[in-house]
Design a binder for these strands. Structure first.
Lengths: 332, 332
DNA sequence: TTGTAGGCGTTATCAT
DNA sequence: ATGATAACGCCTACAA
């Protein structure tokens, strides 16, 4: 019953153990004839190399670790999908872990994953730079949605995110725009506020009102709705789509007619954005690409195709998807 | 720079290598004093056992494989979350793989994952019973959303799913109910149709119309909408929430007033169900529990706490979440 | 081009 | 209770 090992293949093919090893993992080092014989034998016996043994011998595992705050959040599940696909294509397996938005858990996961994978991808970390850097010093790592000097990272252009949204609203004629932000601990939110500042500078004819920090979910939107309505703004940009949907939900409940009384722009372009009504205009973030890009970079480093020191911060572009939640402001 | 091994700990603690191994993985076999000394040394040196080596020696990997059709589908991502949480709590790591709804890819994933994990969880498989059984003969396996004789499985009570939905509609006064089905290859859809038959038998005062098979997404619902309207049914049950939302979207576009002109019941109770309008009445499926239950069973088997032959098919209950997409039928 | 032999870090089987 | 020592299955100099 015990599984077939390389030794069995060797006997079956009438060659030595090492020849089998070579024929299978470095075919060019073995004579055409022998190689075929070995490969045939391997196939016949249904040989499959033992990953643990290989890993022990080579020091590599052919696996990547992926840590996300919440697997069941559509933003992250897209990222996971991208990571998994790219990794598999590159011959790597992915070990996923869910920190449940808990910084302590996140660190725990990082610690234990660090030494059983060849590379670690950390998505939207909730931990401090230092804690992350410490782990990064012990294992190849790529950051998603965050940058830390000296660590590989892939992010989106958060300035562009808000710029795009604001420019769109301004072009429609809006002059008073509100921003419903995410958690104050959010790296993305900080970047977006920064972008907002730039916007305000650049477009001197508009005013941007910061409505504060809210939970990045439906509930956060609900909480921000009345505030938004009272702010006098004719349009609002929210931290993400869920917030936008919550905000719209509450406003519709209050009898507001959208987008007539308020234009709303979300961020993420989740697959539900087109499904609500009015369908949500949103800044699309290429989530799967975020994941695959991170894997790409990581694999490049692992394969020595990319210098390990030349710090690389890749920034992916975003684009606006215009739907019906945005329109010209109502006449005064 | 090379990592600290058990041997280092041994020297540091002044004991033999084997004592270190025992002190750490079978503490009760070693004297109190020595144990403390070893553990102290281990902590001091920051020792972490090498998983590959351990795996090679024990034949176990402490990891589970999980294969799903689409990581980015909210149904599956919930399952993944449940699996990951339970596995981690049980000391197991999870390797996820996405088959992209492709049966061939699914088999490939199963094959290569089979020999590098202690157990495999296969969610909503798109492959044949035979192909699955073959893999199951070589590795511990648990099925999700499907049963195959002889293989461990966790499913929901699909009969109850439709019964609950239909009973609710009937109680509201509906007598003509339509069913918008999923793909003909769907195991769940087959079970639900079966349940529908039982309903029709049991409630002789209602008629259930089968509208056919549709894609299990928004588009499928759009496609089924006009058909549903034309069927004369006053209420409809759809294969899942996405279909329900698509159907409602199309109908609203046509000017229908919901739920006045048509009551709609979805299945899954995705987190978006409450967010659309009218909010969607849906049969809640305990998705994370599906995942954690599967892990539980699998770990029980792996630990020998559960007989490997006594085939177990666990069925989880569902419940109805009533929202505003269902109401009494309009007067004629 | 192929074979020999040593080692990767643990666990597990023997003795002691 | 503890210490040698042989696996575990593969890779990789090194030798032939």
């Amino acid at each position: 019953m015990s599984v077939v090992t390389a030794r069995h293949v060797a006997e079956h093919a009438g060659v030595s153990l090492s020849t089998v090893s070579r024929a299978l993992s470095a075919p060019e080092l073995v004579a055409e004839r022998t190689r075929r014989r070995v490969q045939a034998a391997a196939r016949e016996l249904g040989y499959e190399p033992n990953v643990a043994a290989r890993s022990l011998a080579t020091g590599r595992t052919s696996s990547l670790g992926l840590v996300v705050p919440d697997l069941d959040n559509p933003f992250f599940s897209s990222v996971v999908k991208g990571v998994q696909a790219k990794a598999w294509a590159g011959g790597y397996t992915v070990v996923v872990a869910d920190s449940n938005e808990d910084p302590a858990m996140e660190r725990e996961l990082l610690q234990s994953l660090a030494k059983q994978v060849d590379g670690l991808i950390l998505c939207s970390p909730r931990t401090s730079d230092d804690a992350i850097a410490e782990v990064a010093s012990r294992v190849r790592m790529a950051l998603l949605n965050r940058t830390i000097p000296g660590i590989l990272s892939v992010t989106i252009d958060n300035t562009q995110v808000v710029m795009t949204a604001v420019a769109h609203l301004r072009a429609l004629g809006h002059r008073s725009i509100a921003y419903v932000g995410g958690p104050s601990t959010s790296w993305s939110d900080a970047r977006r506020r920064e972008g907002l500042r730039l916007c305000a500078e650049r477009f001197s004819d508009i005013t941007v009102t910061d409505l504060g920090h809210f939970r990045p979910h439906y509930s956060g939107g609900v909480a921000a709705a009345d505030l938004t309505a009272a702010s006098g703004a004719t349009a609002v940009v929210t931290f993400n789509d869920l917030v936008a949907i919550g905000l719209m939900g509450r406003l519709k409940e209050r009898g507001f007619v959208l987008p007539r009384q308020l234009s709303v722009v979300g961020i993420d372009d989740l697959s539900i954005a087109p499904l609500i009504s009015p369908s949500l205009t949103s800044v699309r973030i290429p989530r799967p690409q975020l994941g695959s890009s991170a894997v790409q970079s990581l694999l490049d480093v692992l394969a020595g195709r990319r210098p390990t020191d030349g710090v690389s911060h890749e920034t992916l572009p975003v684009d606006l998807v215009i739907r019906q939640s945005t329109a010209e402001p109502a006449e005064k």
